[in-house]
Amino acid sequence: MNKRPPGDDVDNIIQLKQAEMASADWSNLLGHLAVKPDKRLYARLFSHFAPKVKAYIVRLGVALATAEELTQEVMLSVWRKAHMYHPEKAAASTWIFTLARNQSIDWMRKQKYPQYSLDEWSETASEPGQGEQKVLSDRIAAAIKLLPEKQAQVIYMSYFEGRSHGDIAGRLDIPLGSVKSRIRLASEKLKQIWGGDRYEH
């Protein structure tokens, strides 16, 4: 269907210096892996993402030794599930984030984090904005930096510390409703960037 091969030439990607790689390049690279297993490409992806995946897991409160093990499992599943990745549906960082999140939670709770079907997701994802996911990610990144501190704080506490609304309310000593309205305000701004861009197409 829309498993359109990434446009960029794979050798060009390999020649790019690690530091120069933008979000779009990583998505293209993972897109190549999705079509054809390639250990050389995987090694590049690994050296960029494994240290970040570990940082994420450590921030969730997992002990270092376990975080190392979990990182290995997540990065192994990046290889094994690469064929399920669609560059037009999500940036590489997004896709790897969901793998890291799910596997960390599964480990911490000894319960599988309930997920809606990824297959279904890719079949029904909206048509507008296709191919723009990686660009959108860069714009979302810029927008997050511009969020007021109070809104950024609740987002960090949600994503990095895995705290529920009630938990955040207790920590910050503010009402539950305030936590939710801060998240809603942030979400509203991000949605404008996300949706606004899509509907221009």
């Binding site: 970040k52 994420y56 921030r59 975080a67 984030f97 959108l136 990610s137 990144a141």
Partner: peptide
């Protein structure tokens, strides 16, 4: 995608 962006923003371990 916000999660992906935040993952990308982390300092490497």
């Amino acid at each position: 995608a916000v999660g992906g962006v935040l993952l990308e923003s982390l300092d490497a371990e």
